[in-house]
Design a protein around this nucleic acid. Sequence first.
DNA 1: TAATAAAATTGTAACCATTACAATTTTAAA
DNA 2: TTTAAAATTGTAATGGTTACAATTTTATTA
Lengths: 134, 134
Amino acid sequence: MHFTNDELIEYLRKNNIRPSNIRLKVLKYLLENRNHPTVEDIYHHIIHEIPTLSRTSIYNTVNLFKDRGIVNELSLNEKELRYDINTRLHGHFKCESCGNIYDFQVAENIGDGLKGFVVYKKDINFYGICINCQ
Amino acid sequence: MHFTNDELIEYLRKNNIRPSNIRLKVLKYLLENRNHPTVEDIYHHIIHEIPTLSRTSIYNTVNLFKDRGIVNELSLNEKELRYDINTRLHGHFKCESCGNIYDFQVAENIGDGLKGFVVYKKDINFYGICINCQ
DNA sequence: TAATAAAATTGTAACCATTACAATTTTAAA
DNA sequence: TTTAAAATTGTAATGGTTACAATTTTATTA
């Protein structure tokens, strides 16, 4: 999947995020890879294009994206947090053997028992051994 | 709910955990309160009964309980981890207003799409505003 | 265009829950 | 009692993330 600069700028503007060089590159990476990267992953990918890049800028960027609702922060019982550009409801499976993270479908009515509760974030994370590691 | 010492000892022995004073007190606290406490919560509750108690002992104990499968570790996007003596499948709802953590039912067949995957941990955590804080 | 303000970026230091580890104490076994 | 094993303790280290001030870049206005 490939996104033009104009598409990336539009994506950010629609979500009330001023486009900047760093933000466009982070967004592009998230959209074109969709690999639930850590801050370190993102940093290493972009440092080659922006040699003065600071890790703090990546932290600032993903936190801004999170506040604006265009990424979800994943806490998968690892040391580092991960970021997911896919904000539609889905589950994550982490293979403890190969480390891969798989998306899986989840019924929309999960948690419907919470009547009267306002839910604005749903984390569904499974752990185990994936089919390729058996 | 109240547990006798003999019941607590039996509970640990059945799960291959040598009973000790600290372990019995931690287990008793988890069973009788069921409030998803942090290490700090547990420590503060027991320090009155064991003045020489060390935080490390609480860390050791909850990690041992986790390894033996009698508690689940909850990562609810807080600084601290929490521990839940109820290891049956259920979801957690964290109210961002009052901080309360609610259990809720979850269909047993959630994640059945993961055919061929061995799942040994299921985390289902929701965040929002509870019915009492609206 | 220049001057000014606002926003973005950077780098360092601090934070702090958790773990590592060695020393001490307690418990169990012989 | 002796000895070994296990449990507990206290301190130091870890390391991802945040705080914050300084610098740079971008946008606005005269």
